[in-house]
């Protein structure tokens, strides 16, 4: 798609590229709102100009007609906008639901923002800076955190955006529909070189993507790096697969529901695993003592991601890579 490349850097577009499954839905709502806005703007402006001309003051002493209002009119222009806003609200809410609910099967990529660059980590171990390669046609989920201040991942062509916060995970998902190179911006002001914290999302045909993937993974997959770290930090002395350790068995745990000491149940997700590493005593699994130390300050954000990915990779069955 040389044409797409050329278009992106030349000429003046008036409308952004639409390159994800979400783009069409957002654009439809946008056009609907433009129609509504144009209708009311023209209506108001037309009436004002019409009245200003038709009822212009013809003698210095003339005064306006004597009437003060009308209940029917007031109700009309209260109720009609009310129903229009309900339509917009429901429409906008449904788009937002779709944005915040990723499909079950996603290609997960970890993102770490720091002043002023983006670091991407693929599950197979590839690391990229300010450039993100993804295949066309597959839903991709970005799991994001920041090393310092608040950043924000924004890919206009996909119509998605989310803040990237220090100390917690946020995520967005998108499904690219068109190969090409698209802008990636930091959309939350983050300091001096904020406008330099930009990159590109490279959407590739699946076959090209496979080629790119196999091009280089010097450090092995993310999960295997996590496995090494799991050994190095001696996590495996307590978290043993045979249920004999002092900590819970992690195999097959991810995505399941766990019961806490307090009696409440939670879903084991990235955020919970992360919290359990950094602040283990906050939410302890039922049947275990709060004896695990915190690793706050001992592991970097990137190492945390490796550990989380390792925990995710631990299936109940022996972890055999099928691919």
């Amino acid at each position: 798609m040389d044409e797409a490349d050329a278009d992106m850097w030349k000429g003046t577009p008036l409308f952004p590229d639409s390159a994800s499954t979400m783009a069409g839905r957002v654009d439809a709502l946008y056009f609907f709102l433009i129609v509504v806005s144009a209708f009311f703007s023209v209506l108001i402006a037309g009436l004002i100009v019409f009245y200003a001309v038709k009822y212009r003051r013809r003698s210095p002493d003339s005064v306006g007609a004597s009437f003060h209002g009308g209940m029917a009119l007031e109700l009309t222009w209260t109720v009609i906008p009310f129903f229009i806003t309900i339509v917009i609200f429901v429409w906008g809410a449904s788009v937002f639901f779709a944005m915040s609910r990723p499909p079950d099967e996603t290609l997960n990529i970890y993102v770490v923002g720091k002043q002023w660059m983006w670091k991407f980590q693929h599950l197979d171990g590839q690391r990229e800076i300010n450039e993100l390669h993804v295949p066309v046609g597959r839903p991709v989920k970005l799991i994001m955190t920041s090393e310092d201040v608040i950043h924000d991942v924004f890919v206009p062509a996909f119509r998605v955006k989310a803040d990237v916060l220090p100390g917690r995970y946020t995520n967005i998902w998108f499904q690219p529909t068109k190969p090409g190179r698209y802008h990636l911006f930091c959309a939350e002001y983050c300091g001096t070189r904020h406008s330099g914290m930009v990159g590109e999302v490279v959407v590739m045909d699946p076959s090209e993507y496979q080629t790119w993937l196999s091009g280089g993974a010097p450090e092995g997959s993310l999960a295997s790096a996590g496995a090494r770290l799991f050994q190095d930090l001696a996590c495996n002395t307590c978290h043993r697969p045979d249920a004999q350790g002092r900590g819970p068995v992690l195999e097959g745990l991810f995505g399941k529901t766990a019961t806490l000491q307090s009696g409440e149940t939670i879903t084991v997700d990235e955020a919970y695993v992360r919290e359990s590493i950094l602040n283990p005593s906050a939410r302890v699994t039922a049947g275990f003592q709060p004896i695990m130390p915190t690793f706050q300050g001992l592991v970097t954000e990137e190492q945390l991601l490796e550990l989380v990915e390792y925990v995710k990779s631990l299936q109940s069955l022996p972890p055999v890579q099928t691919r």
Binding site: R246, L278, M292, P293, T294, Q296, G297
Partner: peptide
């Protein structure tokens, strides 16, 4: 009532 785990205990206290 907690079992000893010296290096970790220190960090836990930090938090």
């Amino acid at each position: 009532n907690d079992g000893g785990n010296p290096p970790g205990k220190l960090a836990d206290v930090e938090l």
